[in-house]
């Protein structure tokens, strides 16, 4: 057993808060660091709002210091001067090619919410493969239809092309933006009607599902996760499996919150690189890190 792996196992036994959880909490605070916004019921208006953060984090959250990439993409595509979204797409591609879905596993605040909800003691559901596999394609449909197609082509009676994903689906907007703003802002409370009730229902269903199923929003619905999944196989950050060390015990697959077949397909677009497989592997066969060389996922950067 390698020293690194021994240390990892030792840390695991005596662990309080995991490394993943610490980073998730830190990043959630970092991207929602405008504490005064929560107290005043107003949103941040500083210059950093021109920059997209890598995660699904509503720019109407009172604490948000940056812009949501999915909201920004819809805003540019559905704006008065609709055009190709070079800036937003460029930033999303940059996050995707460097990190892949590490963003989902380590940085996303709504991923953190789902992880914490799944900690609530309850019977846990394993979604049958027959249902799980096709359902995972729904997120790609949401990306194509609600984030790109409808904001591009479907104008309302007033000629406006709203951000359809944000308006009808996004639970992160309801949780991070809608609820805190409505609680602090009586004038907004008067405007809340059927649409808010619909969005609250969507959030409630996802919250309930998160208690029973691990990361249901990431698995089936998140358009940003779908976008980053396209980069998972060739991103700079990669998970690695040493088949020589693997004893095929499947502990990694039992621990995987996304139900990925780790030993068969460690580079899967469904892997969120949370590192749970790595931490439970009894032989240290699973590793991860940045790869830069011609040998694809095998050559770590700087070596």
């Amino acid at each position: 057993m390698s020293r690194v792996h021994r240390d990892r196992m030792k840390n695991k036994k005596g662990a309080g808060i995991s490394f993943q959880r610490k980073i998730q909490l830190l990043f959630a605070v970092l991207v929602n660091g405008y504490a005064a916004g929560f107290a005043r019921g107003k949103i941040f208006t500083g210059k950093s709002k021109a920059v997209c953060v890598p995660v699904l984090n509503c720019y109407s959250c009172p604490g948000a210091l940056g812009a949501c990439p999915i909201g920004s993409l819809q805003a540019v595509l559905g704006g008065v001067n609709s055009h190709f979204p070079f800036y937003v797409l460029g930033l999303m591609m940059l996050f995707g090619v460097v990190l892949g879905r590490l963003v989902c596993g380590l940085l996303c605040p709504f991923g953190l919410v789902q992880d914490l909800l799944h900690k609530i003691p309850s019977p846990k559901l394993k979604v049958p493969k027959k249902l799980d596999r096709p359902a995972r394609y729904v997120k790609y449909g949401i990306l194509l239809v609600f984030v790109v197609g409808l904001p591009l082509f479907a104008a309302t009676d007033t000629g406006v092309r709203p951000p359809y994903f944000c308006k009808y689906i996004c639970p992160a907007g309801t949780l991070g933006g809608g609820i805190p703003l409505l609680l602090m802002n009586p004038s907004l409370q008067k405007l809340a009607g059927a649409l808010f009730q619909w969005k609250a229902l969507v959030l409630l269903v996802i919250v309930a599902a998160s208690v029973l199923i691990s990361r249901p929003f990431c698995r089936y619905l998140c358009p940003l996760g779908a976008f980053y999944a396209l980069f998972n196989r060739f991103s700079f950050y990669q998970m690695r499996l040493d088949k020589g060390l693997c004893i095929d015990c499947k502990a990694c697959e039992r621990a995987c919150p996304m139900a990925v077949a780790v030993t068969a397909d460690i580079g899967s677009g469904e892997c969120i690189r949370c590192g749970k497989c790595r931490s439970v592997c009894p032989t240290g066969a699973i590793g991860s890190g940045f790869s830069c060389g011609v040998k694809g996922s095998g050559k770590p950067c700087g070596k």
Binding site: I43, K49, Y59, A75, G173, G178
Partner: peptide, 16 residues
């Protein structure tokens, strides 16, 4: 353009 959108409360995003 992103900045202009992000510094105003997005009523659609919050369900209003």
């Amino acid at each position: 353009e992103v900045f202009q959108k992000a510094v105003r409360i997005c009523l659609e995003c919050i369900g209003i």
